[in-house]
Design a protein around this nucleic acid. Structure first.
Ligand code: ZN
Ligand code: ZN
Ligand code: ZN
Ligand code: ZN
Lengths: 134, 134
DNA sequence: ACTCCGGTTGAGAATCATTGTCATGAGGAA
DNA sequence: TTCCTCATGACAATGATTCTCAACCGGAGT
């Protein structure tokens, strides 16, 4: 059987940040927040922790327009995201018809092992009003 | 006004490759193909050409699971893609309901400047049958 | 509490797609 | 043809992510 991961200070710290954060954030942002809070964790470890959590489906991961990977602790089950480009604030959304549509399209064209990516990006109301402040 | 881009051998060569290719390909793959055909073009130039073409919406761009950017000469108009992970073969697909759904979701949540990404990845029938050859 | 083992950490190096630099080259208008 | 520019390309630089590996520490057993 598989070994359970050890309960280390670093892993707990990363999970705690994800708990607190509302939106998606990059590994480096999480690393910075940890430094600010004085619970410093090595950058490599942050990356590793997020990888493991993502593989275990404990967190969701997506790429922003710049190709950076962002992470977020989401609710369970398949869903997609409406993400603010500026602050990362996120709304989880479901599109039952899209799921079926994607699978049907793939099926009709003889594709196997199908997966799909679907994200909506925009600027949230908060960031829209804060646009031109000193 | 904007200057028209110059009609150089290199730009023509890149466009010619995109014309011939059926599926999505990375800048480096296109660079390799050019080298094979003896119409060598600098890697920087390949990247620049593809960038310009993408900004002008002459080609579509997307990221594969590894985060690499792939390019393809598509038909005009907004559409999405069913892409083979193995060979890049691509089927253009349209999802009118998805478009409306995405915009409505964003609107309902007060998001502006909305864009969305939607791609379907799988293994095409050809690559499925070629799986275990010597 | 003490020991020991194997998973975990982290500073730094390595990877690698992509972008920047800048001297040289070549469109194309006159 | 001349000449002004933009375009090119060899090479360096960037930057997110991954790798390395010696030191570290969680936790099971005693
Ligand atoms: Zn999610
Ligand atoms: Zn925002
Ligand atoms: Zn397309
Ligand atoms: Zn669309």
């Amino acid at each position: 059987m598989v070994e359970a991961p050890r309960n280390t200070r670093q892993r707990r710290a990363v999970v705690a940040i994800l708990d607190d954060l509302d939106g998606f954030a990059s590994a480096q942002e999480i690393h910075d927040i940890l430094k600010q809070r004085g619970e410093s964790v090595g950058l490599s470890t942050v990356y590793r922790s997020l990888q493991v959590l993502a593989e275990a489906a404990e967190v969701d991961a997506l790429r922003n327009a710049d190709g950076e990977v962002l992470y977020r602790q989401c609710s369970a089950g398949h869903h997609h995201h409406l993400v603010c480009r500026a602050c990362g604030r996120t709304v989880e959304v479901e599109g039952p018809t899209v799921e079926r549509w994607a699978d049907r399209i793939a099926e009709e064209n003889g594709f196997r092992d199908v997966a799909h990516t679907l994200e909506i990006f925009g600027t949230c109301d908060r960031c829209t009003s804060n646009r031109d402040l000193p």
